[in-house]
C-alpha cells in the first residue's frame, strides 16, 4: 500500500504544466469572467460579436505581457465586480465559499455521529454478526433467489 502511495506521489510531483500560448491564457481568463453581453454565461461561452471583440482585447493584453491580475483589474474597473465568475475569497465574496464547506463538514459529522450512536447501541446488545466475502454473498443471493422461486411456485411467498 505504501509503495502505491509513493508511486502516486512521484507521478504527481513529476507532472508539471507546460508553458501556455497567449491565446490559451486569454481563453483561461475568459473562462473566469462572466460575459457583460450575454445572460448567465462566461465570456468564453458568449456567442455575441462584442464578446468576440473583448476576447480579442484580452488576448492582445496577454501578448503585451500584462499579468492575469492586471487584466482582471482592467476588466473589473470597466465592468464592475460582478464580472468575476468566481467570488473573491475575501469580504462578501468569501461568504460564497463557506456554506458548501460547512454543509459537507456538518453532514459528515452528523452522519458519523449517527453511525457511531447506532453501532454503539448494537454493541451494547448481544453480539450478532454476519461476515461474508463478496463471493459468498453472491452464492447466498443465488440460493435465496432459488428459494424464493420455489416458494413463489408453492404460493408461500408473494
Amino acid at each position: 500500500m505504501r509503495a502505491i502511495a509513493a508511486a502516486v506521489a512521484c507521478l504527481i510531483l513529476l507532472a508539471s504544466p507546460a508553458a501556455a500560448a497567449p491565446e490559451d491564457i486569454a481563453n483561461d481568463i475568459s473562462n473566469e469572467i462572466m460575459s457583460p453581453f450575454c445572460d448567465g454565461v462566461t465570456l468564453h461561452d458568449c456567442p455575441s460579436q462584442e464578446a468576440l471583440e473583448l476576447r480579442n482585447r484580452i488576448e492582445a493584453w496577454v501578448s503585451e505581457g500584462q499579468s492575469r491580475t492586471q487584466i482582471m483589474s482592467h476588466l473589473e474597473r470597466e465592468f464592475g465586480a460582478g464580472i468575476r465568475a468566481v467570488p473573491p475569497a475575501e469580504g462578501a465574496g468569501f461568504v460564497a465559499w463557506i456554506p458548501p464547506l460547512v454543509a459537507l463538514a456538518a453532514g459528515a459529522a452528523g452522519a458519523w455521529a449517527i453511525v457511531r450512536k447506532w453501532s454503539r447501541r448494537t454493541q451494547a446488545a448481544p453480539r450478532v454478526s454476519v461476515t461474508m466475502t463478496s463471493e459468498e454473498g453472491h452464492r447466498l443471493d443465488q440460493e435465496l433467489a432459488m428459494l424464493r422461486a420455489a416458494a413463489s411456485r408453492e404460493g408461500e411467498w408473494p
Partner: peptide, 11 residues
C-alpha cells in the same frame, strides 16, 4: 449587501 457578485462555472 447590495453588491452584485457573480457565481459562474469556475466556482
Amino acid at each position: 449587501t447590495g453588491l452584485r457578485l457573480s457565481v459562474g462555472p469556475p466556482f
